[in-house]
C-alpha cells in the first residue's frame, strides 16, 4: 500500500471512530474482496462467506476503538475475518461435520486403495476431480494447519502476517505449514503418481 492509500485509510478509520457511516461504507469497499476471499476459503461456499464477512465488518465497526495502529489495519482486519469465519462455522456446527465427513471420505478412499491398487490418476477425471480431492484433504487438516495453509497458499499472505493474525511465532506458523504440506502430500500422493 502506498503512502497516499495509507493516509486515506487512516483518515477513513478516524472518521469511522467518530461514527461516520459513509466512511465505514468506503472501508467496506476497500476490503470486501480480500475479506470475501479469505472467508470463502475457510467456510467453503459463497453464501456462508458473505454472512461471515458481514459478521467481520460489524465487529470492525463496533470495535474500531480497539485498533490502536500497532499492526497494519489489514492484519487486524484479516484476524477478524478469520475469527468471524471460525465463529460462523462453530455456530452452524459445520466445522465438526465437514471435518468428520472428510475424514470418513479419506478413510473410505484409503480402504479402496488397499483393495483396489489400480486407483491412480488414470481413474480420476481431470483437474476438477483433483481439486475436489485437494479440498477434502485440506478440510481434513487440523484447524491451525488449515488456516495457515489457506492463508499462505490460497490467499497469498506471508508467514509474518499469518503469525500476527494468529498471534503466534513465525516458527510456529512454519511448523503448521510444514505439517499441513506433509499431510496433504501423503493424502494426495495416491492421485499424484505418474
Amino acid at each position: 500500500m502506498n503512502t497516499e492509500a495509507a493516509a486515506r485509510e487512516e483518515f477513513v478509520i478516524q472518521r469511522i471512530r467518530s461514527g461516520d457511516r459513509a466512511a465505514f461504507e468506503e472501508l467496506v469497499t476497500m476490503y470486501r474482496n480480500r475479506g470475501l476471499s479469505i472467508a470463502y476459503n475457510l467456510v467453503g461456499n459463497l453464501e456462508d462467506a458473505k454472512d461471515a464477512l458481514q459478521d467481520a465488518f460489524i465487529k470492525v465497526y463496533l470495535y474500531i476503538e480497539g485498533f490502536r495502529g500497532q499492526s497494519k489495519f489489514s492484519t487486524w482486519f484479516h484476524r477478524i475475518v478469520v475469527n468471524a469465519s471460525l465463529d460462523f462455522l462453530r455456530k452452524k456446527k459445520r466445522a465438526v461435520s465437514v471435518l468428520t465427513e472428510s475424514l470418513q471420505d479419506n478413510i473410505k478412499e484409503g480402504d479402496r486403495e488397499i483393495s483396489d491398487n489400480s486407483l491412480g490418476p488414470a481413474r480420476i477425471a481431470g483437474n476438477q476431480e483433483l481439486n475436489r480431492r485437494l479440498e477434502d484433504a485440506i478440510a481434513g487438516l487440523s484447524l491451525k494447519q488449515r488456516i495457515c495453509f489457506v492463508l499462505k497458499h490460497q490467499n497469498g499472505l506471508g508467514v509474518r502476517e499469518i503469525a500476527e493474525i494468529l498471534r503466534c511465532r513465525r516458527s510456529t506458523v512454519k511448523v503448521h505449514l510444514f505439517r499441513a504440506a506433509e499431510n496433504l502430500r501423503r493424502k494426495m500422493n495416491v492421485y499424484l503418481k505418474e
Binding site: H153, Q154, N189, L192
Partner: peptide
C-alpha cells in the same frame, strides 16, 4: 519434492472465487 510442488500448484490454481 515433486509431490509437494504439485500440491502447492494445485492449491494456487484451485478454482478461484
Amino acid at each position: 519434492a515433486g509431490e509437494l510442488k504439485t500440491v502447492f500448484s494445485l492449491a494456487a490454481k484451485r478454482e478461484k472465487l
